[in-house]
Computed example of a mutant assay.
Amino acid sequence: MRGFLYPRTATGRASLIPSPPWHYSGDLLTVEYRTHPGRVAELLPPPLAPAPDGPGAVALIWADWQSCGASGEELLDPVRSQYKECFAVVRCAFEGRVYSRCVYIWVDKDFAVLRGLHQGYPKKLGSIHQTRPHPFGPAPRLAEGARFGATLAAGDRRLAETVVTLTGPAERNGFVNGHPMAHHRWLPSIVPGEPDAHEELIESGAAAFEGGPVWAGDFELRLFDSPTEELTRLPVVEPIGAYYRQVGVVWNGGRVLAQRAGGRMPRNSQSPPNAVDRTSSDSVG
């Protein structure tokens, strides 16, 4: 049977995603703020702990992506490459190191959901939109005073909306999503009442990264209640800032930090050879 993940077939042609490396080009609109540290802590299962400084920091990121496998063929069949997402990121600590962690994420394509299953992102389907810059016509330019809007909805209900007003260039695209990701990969047992059949804490990050100029800004953000979502449990207590940046990212796997929550550490605890230090919002799924 061939194919990277589901479905595996005799030829592998029907597999929803190719094997890594995965390549991404995207426009990121990020808003950062502080919420109640206890609300972040409740989303950090063992062996993770809150970040030692700024434990209540949150980044809510809208991204408009084009993605592909090593061959790049999806770029010429855009329905297979283009998707949008919105994800909430917090920071956490493990064995004295600070990590970023995606706690909520919505995407609008099935292949993005399946990639998230492999990477440990808790992806759900949603409706995501954001203003695109353009040098002509009424669309905003990348300049002081330009205004960008973004919305998130899921299950027929709006969950978030923001308006960002650019104030000028900046050195970096925020700090919350600037670390390797620490995610859990879970697979429930097929036997009712039994522990998870698979549980591991993994680290992953960009194998390669490039980015354009960073623009900072001010923002307004509204979060809305839903019977099936919990984003409003991370309310805005103090705004930090907003950012716009175009990025290119390569993702090519990660490493296991721990198996079972709080369990035994694997022998190989070195960073993967394809990982690079991340200084911008460049997590992808």
Rank of each mutant, 00 (worst) to 15 (best):
Y121Q: 06
Q130P: 10
R222A: 12
V249I: 15
P133L: 13
T9R: 14
Q66M: 10
S281E: 06
G56T: 00
V191E: 15
T228Q: 12
F94L: 04
P192N: 14
Y244R: 15
P122T: 02
H198N: 08
K84F: 11
Y121E: 01
P47C: 12
V40C: 12
G126L: 06
A197W: 11
E42S: 13
D64F: 07
P273Q: 04
R260E: 02
E220R: 10
P140R: 10
W22Y: 02
G193L: 08
A170V: 08
A143S: 13
L16P: 02
R97V: 13
L187T: 14
E42Y: 01
A275S: 03
S100A: 14
P46W: 09
E85S: 14
G217F: 06
G3Q: 09
V249S: 08
G120D: 05
E171Y: 07
T228A: 10
T151R: 14
G217D: 03
R267V: 14
G263I: 13
L201D: 05
T35G: 01
L257K: 04
V107E: 00
D77V: 13
E220M: 05
T167H: 04
V58M: 04
V249C: 02
Q270R: 15
F4R: 12
V247Q: 13
T131K: 12
P46H: 13
W186S: 07
V89L: 03
C86V: 04
S204E: 10
D110A: 03
S19A: 13
R141C: 08
V191G: 09
A49F: 01
E73M: 09
P7D: 05
D53W: 10
P266D: 08
A208T: 05
G263L: 14
R278I: 15
A258E: 14
G38D: 15
G193E: 10
G178Q: 03
E161W: 03
S19E: 08
V256S: 02
N177S: 15
A59Y: 01
V98W: 01
R233V: 00
G137N: 00
L221R: 04
F209S: 11
I190Q: 15
N173L: 12
T279C: 02
L223M: 00
P52C: 12
G211E: 11
L125H: 10
R115Q: 09
C102A: 11
E95P: 01
T131M: 10
P227S: 01
L43V: 08
G168C: 04
T35S: 10
R115E: 09
D53K: 14
Q270M: 13
L221M: 02
A160E: 02
A206H: 09
S271P: 02
D27V: 10
